[in-house]
Nucleic acid binder design. Structure first.
Length: 209
DNA sequence: AAATTTTACAACCGCTTCTTA
DNA sequence: CTAAGAAGCGGTTGTAAAATT
């Protein structure tokens, strides 16, 4: 899942770490610490750059690192902290013992991003676009098809009053959370609701998304 | 069953911030 | 105060594995 090992023009090794390299890095840090990352690879006998060693240690080899298996509580914390701090991954990682900033960032992008309230701006823009399209094509709201009222009623699930925190009204991740269709994404994200669907709807009044 | 697409995540790169002389 | 070097951070990439067609 990672780049194949190779050497750059300076003879520095890049790409995936081998088991042997991992053991050399662990052994060196356990014995001497990591006061100077730049010097570390030379002293440890590694042909990596210091930056690469630091990254490997911080994100993969250091003790007490958890790997995968995010708990519901951790997911909620990440969502909440991201709403609060934005992409300050190191700041977020401080609140999640055993998780690296890189891992949280990856987890966010692959699992949680789509549920972020920070996407609400984009969502609002999409709703406005839908309204614009509807008015320009004189579409009448129809209960069997997508309409702005339909959009807004679902938006209510995700819009919060300024003084009410999202997480106070959100019922959390249910056991089947990841397998259940998600109204927001499946219906309103531009990725899933292309403009062409509106054209289909115009042509076919019984069209169901 | 094979081909294609999507997902997940380790690792890289470049920029910023911090430290020290 | 300033410059240089080191460390840290966050965006992005590459690719194996999984899912889908």
């Amino acid at each position: 899942m990672v780049r194949a090992p190779y050497f750059d023009e300076n003879g520095t090794k890049k790409g995936a770490w081998s088991e042997e390299e991992d053991q050399m890095l662990i052994a060196h840090i356990q014995r001497h610490g990591h006061a100077n990352w730049r010097q570390l690879p030379k002293v440890a006998g590694l042909t990596r750059c210091g930056k690469s060693c630091r990254l490997r240690w911080m994100n993969y080899l250091r003790p007490n690192l958890k790997r995968g298996n995010y708990t519901q509580n951790e997911e909620e914390m990440i969502m909440e902290l991201h709403t609060k701090h934005g992409n300050k991954w190191s700041l977020i990682a401080e609140s999640l013992p055993g998780r690296s900033d890189n891992e949280i960032k990856n987890y966010w992008h692959s699992h949680l991003k789509k549920f972020s309230r920070r996407n609400e701006t984009k969502l609002t823009q999409e709703i406005e676009m839908t309204k614009t399209l509807e008015s320009s094509f004189s579409i009448k709201a129809n209960s069997s098809s997508i309409s702005s009222s339909h959009v807004e009623s679902n938006m209510d699930l995700y819009r919060i009053e300024d003084d009410v925190h999202f997480w106070e009204t959100w019922d959390g991740f249910s056991n089947n959370f990841w397998t259940e269709p998600f109204v927001y994404d499946n219906t309103f994200s531009q990725d899933y609701f292309p403009i062409s669907y509106c054209a289909l709807e115009l042509e076919d009044p019984y069209f169901i998304c």
